[in-house]
Amino acid sequence: MLVWLAEYLVQYHTIFNVISYITVRGVMALLTALLISLWIGPKIIRRLQVLKFGQVIRAEGPESHLSKKGTPTMGGIMILIAIGISVLLWANLANPYIWFSMLILFGYGIVGFVDDYYKVVRKNTDGLIARWKYFWLSAIALVAVFGMYCLGKDTDATRLVVPFFKEIMPQLGLFYIVLSYFVIVGTSNAVNLTDGLDGLAIMPTVLVAGAFALIAWATGNVNFAEYLHIPYIKYSSELVVFCTAIVGAGLGFLWFNTYPAQVFMGDVGSLSLGGALGVVAVLVRQELLLVIMGGVFVVEALSVILQVGSYKLRNKQRIFLMAPIHHHYEKKGWPEPRVIVRFWIISLMLVLIGLVTLKLR
């Protein structure tokens, strides 16, 4: 929005040209989202407390979590508000990639809101019926993916980039739709599974989003794309604003979500943020890099899959003391802050490794 205003005002003073720089708008989007989160956070927490939208704790969970019962949940609303306002202010709204990203972010946010509503208001600990939850997540993803495919069909925007190999970039064709669908829906659910401890999911999300901001900037720059041997995608640079808005909103939320948490993001936050990371990875053609940088999310999801598979196929034998894997370490006696910080450190290391692979090609 401010881009259009600046284009008009530049005729009166060249200083308004600064808003056309993607780096400036990226930084401003981060600061705007951060300040909005810090400003509305206390108000939203108080409102959630008045509405008695408290966290539901499963009886089979770790005993240490019983004290969290009643802590306000659905705090992801503040994240969505902060990202939405920041992106609308600082992004070039003529860019289709912004709208694909916003569709996933807010579409998944609505599904997560309904899921949370069933849990906290209707007292249904399972939330929205699973088949309907995945139906709507799938429908929203397919709408976005089909639009993305039509926009970039048979161009670099539908190639698969393989880390470490600069010459391997096959054209995916219709398989682009299948891969993109699983990346978006899978990442959304992986982040949702990770969101089980105070601040555990939001910090890796911030780190991965920050890394994708750098990648989007390079992908949208002809010279840097050529230098790094990655596809040049003309619309991708505007995703810098979207990613930095996630970073800012995430850090603002962490202010209230750090141990001991004053608020939880709920499915409205975790499903939407996971979907957002997935769609950005698809748009900048770095799905495989997301697996590396988002390794914490991958391991959390795999631990659940392995646990369920083992329970069903091995006569109720379990691999972990409890899944997702962060609960396994709690059951082993690790204090919650130790689990959280160590997972943060691992996430930072994986993000740095992922960024290094861009050069090792």
Rank of each mutant, 00 (worst) to 15 (best):
A130Q: 07
F146G: 04
R122Y: 07
I140G: 03
L137I: 10
V143N: 08
Y118R: 10
K123H: 13
D126H: 08
F135M: 10
A130S: 11
G147H: 03
A144M: 08
A141K: 01
F146P: 00
V145Q: 09
F135H: 02
Y117H: 10
V120E: 10
R122L: 09
D126E: 13
W132M: 13
A141H: 03
K133C: 04
L142V: 15
V145K: 05
L128P: 01
D116S: 10
K123C: 06
G147I: 01
R122V: 05
L137T: 13
Y118K: 14
S138M: 14
K123G: 05
Y117W: 14
L128N: 01
G147Q: 03
L137P: 01
D116A: 12
N124K: 11
V121Y: 08
M148C: 09
V121L: 04
I129G: 00
Y134L: 15
L137G: 03
M148Q: 13
A139Y: 15
D116W: 11
T125E: 13
A141M: 02
G147R: 01
D116I: 13
K133L: 06
L128A: 02
G127T: 12
L128T: 02
V121A: 02
Y134Q: 08
I129L: 07
D116V: 11
R131S: 14
N124Y: 04
T125G: 01
R131F: 07
L142D: 06
K133S: 04
F135T: 11
I129S: 01
Y134G: 01
G147V: 00
A130T: 10
Y117S: 07
W132S: 07
Y117F: 14
Y117E: 05
A144E: 04
A130W: 07
S138T: 15
L128W: 07
A141V: 06
T125D: 05
K123E: 12
A130N: 04
S138F: 15
D126V: 07
A139G: 08
D116K: 11
W132T: 10
R131L: 09
I129Y: 03
Y118T: 01
L128K: 02
I129K: 08
V120A: 11
K119M: 00
K133W: 03
K119C: 00
A139K: 07
M148K: 04
F146W: 12
L128Q: 03
V121G: 00
W136G: 08
K133Q: 04
D116Y: 09
K119N: 00
F146Y: 14
L128M: 15
A144P: 08
T125I: 09
V143M: 14
A139T: 15
L137R: 03
R131G: 04
R122P: 01
R122N: 06
S138P: 09
V143A: 13
K133I: 05
D116N: 11
G147S: 08
S138G: 14
S138Y: 12
R131A: 06
D126G: 08
